[in-house]
Amino acid sequence: MSSTARPEGTSSAVSRLGFKSGQIVQELGWDEDVDESLRQEVEDAIDGELVEEAMEPVDVVLLWWRDEDGDIIDGLFDAITDLNDTGYVWLLTPKVGREGFVDATDLNEGAVTAGLTLTSTVPVSAGWTASKLVPPKGPRR
């Protein structure tokens, strides 16, 4: 497999997000405006379904967030509740100029207040950008 090859059926964006087969991925903030093809590609990559209610600690939280969804800090605290000790959050926000766009300053302040670090940002579709947020190393509880 070449360095540019990716699993069949997986988009470049989903490949960059690093999902792996067997991961438990919790999805929060779903609404009718989400990118359904991206959701399907994530499910294909993890070889499973996205979960809404976590019954066990999760590896990744996929959090769809729009400006009108309220306080991003509250949303991020909800997102980290079910993470395992090595888990992280992919925060999906509408791209600049799109309805529901979240200002980068608000995103950064929310992440810091929630005790998370923004490590990367990836465009994942025509309308959405994903920002990877990781908690500090070590136990959170």
Rank of each mutant, 00 (worst) to 15 (best):
T117P: 06
D82V: 00
A126D: 15
I46F: 01
R16E: 11
A54S: 07
P57S: 04
D35P: 00
G115D: 05
I46K: 06
D69N: 11
I24V: 12
W128R: 04
V25F: 03
V51D: 03
D74R: 07
P7T: 11
L83P: 00
G70T: 02
V112R: 15
V96D: 13
I46Y: 04
V134N: 00
V60T: 02
V14E: 03
P7Q: 13
E109P: 06
L91W: 02
V124C: 09
R98D: 10
D69A: 11
I72W: 06
L62V: 04
Q26F: 08
R6T: 05
A54F: 03
V112Q: 15
N108I: 12
M55F: 10
W65L: 04
V102A: 09
P135I: 02
L62R: 03
G97T: 03
G127I: 08
T4G: 14
A45V: 04
D82N: 05
L92A: 01
D33E: 15
R16T: 06
T119V: 13
D44K: 12
N84R: 08
T121H: 08
E32L: 12
W64E: 02
S3M: 09
M55V: 11
K132I: 04
N108V: 12
T81L: 04
W30L: 14
V61L: 00
K137F: 12
L116H: 03
L133A: 00
A79Y: 01
V102Y: 07
M55K: 14
T117Q: 14
I72F: 08
K20Q: 15
E27M: 15
L17D: 00
L83M: 02
S12Y: 11
A45W: 03
W128L: 09
I24N: 07
V112C: 07
G9R: 10
L50Q: 03
T10E: 15
D59E: 02
R66L: 03
L63N: 00
I80S: 06
I73E: 11
F77K: 10
V102F: 08
T10S: 13
A126W: 09
S15F: 14
E41N: 06
T113S: 15
R39K: 12
E8N: 10
D71N: 06
L62E: 04
D31H: 12
G87Y: 01
G29W: 09
A111I: 03
S12F: 10
A126N: 12
V34S: 09
D85S: 07
D103G: 10
V102W: 09
S11D: 05
A5I: 10
D33K: 15
G87T: 02
N84L: 04
E99C: 12
R98Y: 13
S21Y: 05
V61H: 00
L118K: 14
L118Q: 15
E52M: 13
V14L: 03
D103K: 10
V42A: 04
I73C: 10
L107Q: 15
T93N: 03
S15N: 14
W64P: 01
E8A: 14
A111R: 02
L91V: 02
G100W: 06
W65A: 05
E41V: 05
T10V: 15
A111F: 05
E36C: 10
S21P: 06
V122T: 08
E109C: 08
L38N: 07
P57Y: 02
L63A: 01
M55N: 13
N84G: 11
A111Y: 03
P7D: 14
V58C: 00
E43N: 07
G127R: 13
E68A: 14
S131I: 02
S120R: 14
S21T: 09
D106A: 14
T86E: 11
L118T: 15
T129L: 13
